[in-house]
């Protein structure tokens, strides 16, 4: 059951992202909201789809670390460009 709820959450966050683009939103608020959305979606894909719950702690740290690193780099780049 949980995996279907995760799928539904991912689809809803995707539709929100699509709507934000259609509505023409921009700026710091949009970047922060979309990075939060990326992190939430990425976390659930890693934790529930990649079955990382069953693998070593190190792997979970590495893949989540990748997600945090990418989000921080994107935020830093947008901050530099403001």
């Amino acid at each position: 059951m949980r995996v279907y709820l995760v799928w539904l959450l991912l689809v809803m966050l995707t539709l929100l992202t699509w709507w934000a683009g259609k509505a023409g939103f921009s700026g710091e608020g949009l970047v922060a909201a979309l990075l939060a959305s990326i992190f939430i979606k990425g976390h659930f894909v890693i934790a529930d789809f990649m079955v990382l719950r069953d693998v070593a702690f190190l792997w979970r740290v590495l893949v989540h670390g990748w997600l945090i690193l990418v989000s921080c780099l994107i935020f830093l780049a947008y901050w530099v460009g403001m």
């Binding site: 959305s37 990425g42 894909v45 997600l67 994107i74």
Partner: peptide, 14 residues
């Protein structure tokens, strides 16, 4: 899938 989840907002929306 994970890579596209980052790519779509980054390139198409942000």
């Amino acid at each position: 899938d994970l890579v596209w989840i980052v790519l779509f907002p980054l390139v198409y929306v942000i």
